[in-house]
Write a protein that binds this DNA or RNA. Structure first.
Lengths: 339, 339
DNA sequence: ATGACTATTGTTAACGTGTGCATAACATGG
DNA sequence: CCATGTTATGCACACGTTAACAATAGTCAT
């Protein structure tokens, strides 16, 4: 079996208590004794048993990273960036446990004992029961990516409504009036925020959107493709399409080129997220950058602070989005009565 | 504090042993007693303390999912598919702990106590020390995506050499002779396998590749772009380019279109992986599909079997790749002396 | 009625670690 | 020389769970 502090104690001719203290660098122990014990531990290749530590210290050394779902509707880039961001912060102090919220049939097993803290990358209101559960159990908690007002819960996100507003305003400044909207997945908060930013920009300029010019997408390539096919059959075909993410924008561009039309010559396309491939499709996609990795880093840092200081600071951190202008939007020649 | 079996025992008027047995559905306990205890446990919202269980049962309920790196060189789609595949298998029996191997400064903390099993999604020979360490410690282990011959280690992967061979043969059948190769990241086994498949196909047809017609890529969009820029400056510009993954293929296509040339009219491009966006770029990318999600599922299933049956079956499972023909390869008019 | 057997429950120790309290050795000050 | 303080260590218990080994009561066959 594996080496324990008792084995070390026997070899060093001290009590296991002394070994425990020595290895935890307690000031109670003589420096020479510490060194001797450390040397023996090293030589015996001692590794602390984390189950035992957890039991007595009441800490699991686990951090939960929960996504709304691991199956559909989460884009790979988003997922990857989020994990990378968190991982870069926690180093080897914690184990990172990745879960899909929709994998749980019951939250019963989620307790203070099993998680020292939880990071919820929330895409939907439907995550609220989990968030409430965790908050209720008193587990330190940070919610990323979606605004939340549960008390005692940290919240880090980007201002997507504002980003969509900016992007749409840009389309309008380029002369577009007849626009279309490919929405995100129903129930996803981001879908709603982006839609609202889009609509606010239209309203701001007194433009109205016909029901025929909106389509409920699923955040995937295929739904963007299908949406665009619909738009292409309209009599008053839009001159510009706002897509609620880059994947759908790519799908839309595919439909346009298959119809023998050009982006942006015939139709302008704008995306959201600034996925890695956005700069490399042809034409390069104009889109809104959202600092996912930064959000998750920021969230992880604050969560760790919260866990270790035991001070529950509720605050919402709002990071800026940024419009990245590339080639997929074309200025429109205005036909006359323009103000 | 939280409810323990002793609390339940007190309320039920039995010993805590009886409660433990009842909740584990031991045949030793009277059915009526079991029901009564279960009811009380339910009502008190009892959750077992996993640290305590782990300590006495010598099982951590943790499964490690290790990637070569979480920083650079792992594509988002690959990462996402791998996690999804494993996650779909383990359900709620284990916690999935995601790690980058290059995050470790020492493997010291990786023991039988901390992981019931480990899945290594290995992209490089440099992972070997970790694999050896885990095998040495007797941790049930499965290595995905890279061939490995350590004894007692499960191994699931796809035959990438064969996939590359097929894809290249297809290019040759379409009449291409002047080809170029954008290689994968140095040190990544997949890069080597794909290159070898490519070279075998060339050798099979007596075609030689000039040094100027190969470029070491990094598996990312940018390196594909740069590689293609190099090729475009050559006097004997290739008519077809084999890219070791789809990202680099997309980068290459970008460079081609920026140079005012057409894919596949002027230059044919072929990729590898069949990433989600491959079908949606324009032109749609011809590529080799690799069943990543299936590989990870298969690996996870076998690993769980191994953990639970304690039978160490060493076997290598090789899954097939598949050539997906789309639009990015054009048949070449042959100029005469062809056999 | 006695011993053996079965069904059910309890007693006690164990897993590996950390900690409050006691203890011993030794120094310090008056 | 004694009271007090300081430093270094050990003892015993605790954390929540499982399991080997009693123990008890009831049943059955002889």
């Amino acid at each position: 079996m594996s080496v324990t502090i008792k084995d070390i104690a026997r070899l060093a001719g001290v009590s296991h208590t002394t070994v425990s203290r020595a290895l935890n660098d307690s000031p109670l122990i003589n420096e020479k004794t510490k060194d001797r014990i450390r040397a023996i531990a090293e030589e015996m290749d001692y590794t602390p048993n984390f189950s035992a530590k957890s039991l007595v210290l009441d800490r699991s050394y686990n951090l939960g990273l929960f996504f709304t779902t691991l199956s559909k509707g989460t884009s790979a880039g988003f997922f990857y960036d989020a994990i990378r961001g968190v991982n870069s912060v926690i180093q080897d102090r914690y184990q990172l446990i990745v879960k899909g919220i929709d994998d749980y049939t019951s939250f019963h097993s989620i307790t203070r004992k099993s998680f020292d803290g939880i990071i919820v990358v929330s895409q939907s209101d439907e995550d609220q029961p989990l968030i409430d559960h965790a908050a209720d159990k008193g587990i330190p908690l940070v919610v990323l990516n979606r605004p939340v007002d549960t008390v005692g819960v940290l919240n880090v996100l980007s201002d997507e409504e504002q980003g969509a507003f900016q992007a749409t305003s840009y389309l309008i400044r380029q002369g577009h009036r007849n626009m279309a909207l490919i929405e995100g997945r129903v129930g996803f908060k981001s879908a709603q925020n982006r839609k609202e930013g889009f609509e606010r920009a239209l309203a701001h300029h007194g433009i109205t959107l016909k029901p025929s010019h909106r389509f409920p997408g699923l955040y995937d390539l295929e739904s963007g493709y299908k949406a665009m096919q619909q738009f292409l059959m309209l009599e008053d075909r839009p001159t510009a399409v706002f897509c609620c993410n880059d994947e759908m924008a790519l799908g839309a561009m595919k439909a346009i080129s298959e119809a023998g039309l050009q982006v942006p010559g015939d139709i302008s396309v704008i995306g959201f997220d600034d996925t890695v491939f956005a700069a490399y499709v042809t034409p390069a996609l104009t889109t809104v950058r959202r600092p996912i990795e930064q959000i998750s880093k920021e969230g992880a840092i604050r969560l760790l602070g919260n866990i270790e200081n035991k001070q529950y600071a509720t605050e919402q951190v709002l990071l800026k989005t940024e419009l990245i202008v590339r080639e997929s939007v074309h200025p429109l020649q205005l036909t006359g009565e323009e103000g």
